[in-house]
């Protein structure tokens, strides 16, 4: 529990990697839960976007010099990986949307629970 106290008294201290990671963790968990619980296919897609952003937050935080208190520093790898994630998320959204629209055309529904034809 002691470590959790680092997140407190933020008002007088500069935010560090840990604070960004906490925000990223909340987004990640929300996204993962979205993917697990939503029945709308597009809701699942939004969950994926949240997960990717939560991960992105970590990359950006690790790549930022001003957030580190010594130790290893990711340098340029951080923002570059974040950029790749953003670009690939765009690609992923395009393909997923095409699949969803196809599914909608064929089944007249976007409920992911209805996609059970392969269940045998």
């Amino acid at each position: 529990m002691d470590s959790l106290l680092t997140l407190a008294n933020l008002l007088t201290e500069a935010p560090g990697v840990a604070h960004f990671m906490a925000v990223g963790a909340v987004m990640f968990v929300c996204g993962a839960l979205c993917m697990a619980t939503k029945r709308n296919a597009l809701g699942v897609l939004m969950g994926i976007e949240l997960v990717l952003n939560g991960a992105n937050m970590n990359f950006v935080a690790f790549g930022s010099r001003q957030l580190h208190n010594g130790g290893n520093f990711l340098g340029l790898d951080g923002p570059l990986m974040a950029l790749f994630v953003i670009v690939l998320a765009a690609a992923e959204a395009a393909v997923a949307l095409a699949i969803v629209l196809n599914f909608y055309n064929n089944h007249d529904s976007i409920d992911v629970d209805r996609a059970d034809q392969l269940q045998g």
Binding site: S3, L4, T6, L7, T12, E13, A14, P15, G16, V17, A18, H19, M21, A22, A25, V26, F28, V29, C30, A32, L33, A36, T37, Q66, L67, H68, N69, G70, G71, N72
Partner: peptide
């Protein structure tokens, strides 16, 4: 979902805050 999510969140935040190097710098230094 909420049970699993809460556990995951707890784990992630504990992990994030347990490394001293990942805490912020001194404000004046930044």
């Amino acid at each position: 979902g909420l049970g699993a999510g809460a556990a995951l969140l707890f784990l992630l935040v504990i992990a994030a805050t347990s490394v001293p190097n990942w805490r912020g710098r001194d404000a004046a230094e930044v």
